[in-house]
Amino acid sequence: KLWKAARNPDFDLSDALTSERDVTTYNNYYEFGTGKADPARHGGELKTEPWTVSVEGEVARPGTFDLDDLRRLAPLEERVYRLRCVEAWSMVIPWLGYPLASLIRKVEPTGDAKFVEFTTVMQPEAMPGLRSRIIDWPYVEALRMDEAMHPLSLLVFGVYGKPLPSANGAPLRVAIPWKYGFKSGKSIVKIRFTREQPLTSWMKVAPQEYGFYANVNPDVPHPRWSQATERRIGAGVFAPREKTLPFNGYAEQVAALYQGMDLRRDF
């Protein structure tokens, strides 16, 4: 199955694309296991039909959306985004999707909606990782409202011109390119609008290692490794590491969202 969607020239990069093989077989998706190859190995078991997404909380039009209806809500476009993992590796990925803002406007958040929370599916038959106690399942991520409404925030249905494989978060996920990868929830079944800042999964596990904002920041090291540089996946065994850019290179577009904030404290 191939989807035809033109690449949006406003969201293209001169960086070489990471190979489709690496993009789809080297993943963090702990529901399938902690190994990078586990998601691709077990992903085939994930049941994505039928699929519905429930929209809840501070919205005028809550409800349950069928996947096909969601996908037709706005025209799909291809965007090439850098993805920077908190583990200090990165990829360049051609996603297929439309701005998350298109969906958000459709459900009409109330004035009390300050945050958007994304919940990942739990399918114990397909996801052996759910038996581990690493994370308090289901996986929950969240964005501040203005972050979610930012034109860079993408609701993603495909990659490399095809529907998303399970390892990448089938059948729909978000892609927030200026934040560490774990902020972009996969296989979303629930979108909830809240007044209070949600307690996200990795903050529950280790708040001193993973903050709510998780903006890519070379100046704030992870306790166990530096974030100053990154390894570009597919660059070759002897390729030097690359300098990590503030906001993963998207500072021009997003830095204004955090004016007046101390990003060392709110990391």
Binding site: R21, D22, T25, Y26, K36, A37, W89, R231, I233, G234, V237
Partner: peptide
């Protein structure tokens, strides 16, 4: 594995 190009997507980490 190196000659097969099979040192995973992240050879340094693997090695």
């Amino acid at each position: 594995l190196g000659f097969q190009g099979a040192l995973t997507a992240n050879p340094p980490e693997f090695l």
